[in-house]
């Protein structure tokens, strides 16, 4: 079965770039372009992993993480934060908010793919995280 990844990103070009990469690795994708729809899409689609931007319309990545971590069936879904913001301040904040990893843009494709693989492998050890 294909692993489903939710990409939350308002830059459509970036969405496109990540989509090409991830599809080439055999993942199925769902996309949300703002903070509010990120939560509703996540509830509906139950992704195996979320790639999350921090700067978003209608809220921000931190708000999304706060909401997701409060939902019992989504709280264990791994989150990889991908942001152009300064990691010095934002990495600790993101990890504290529940992110599993912080990647600064621009990043190497291998970094993202490796992190997704590891995250899925680790969460695979917890069957309740996946439906």
């Amino acid at each position: 079965m294909q692993n489903r990844i939710l990409i939350v990103e308002d830059d459509l070009d970036m969405v496109r770039a990540m989509a090409v990469r991830l599809k080439s690795q055999g993942y199925s994708l769902v996309v949300a372009k703002d903070a509010i729809s990120a939560i509703s899409v996540a509830r509906k689609e139950k992704p195996d992993l979320i790639v999350l931007d921090l700067g978003l319309p209608a809220g921000d990545g931190f708000m999304v993480m706060k909401r997701l971590k409060a939902l019992p069936d989504l709280m264990l879904v791994p989150i990889i934060v991908v942001s152009a913001r300064n990691p010095k301040f934002n990495e600790p904040l993101a990890l504290q908010a529940g992110a599993d990893l912080f990647l600064q843009k621009p990043f190497e494709a291998a970094e993202l793919l490796g992190a997704i693989q590891n995250a899925l492998r680790l969460s695979g050890a917890r069957p309740e995280a996946r439906k």
Partner: peptide
Amino acid sequence: LSHVSHELRSPLSVVHQFVSI
């Protein structure tokens, strides 16, 4: 500066991604 750097990084990131694709 942090804002500028952020704003410049985002489009650069897209260029970087597509060139590598």
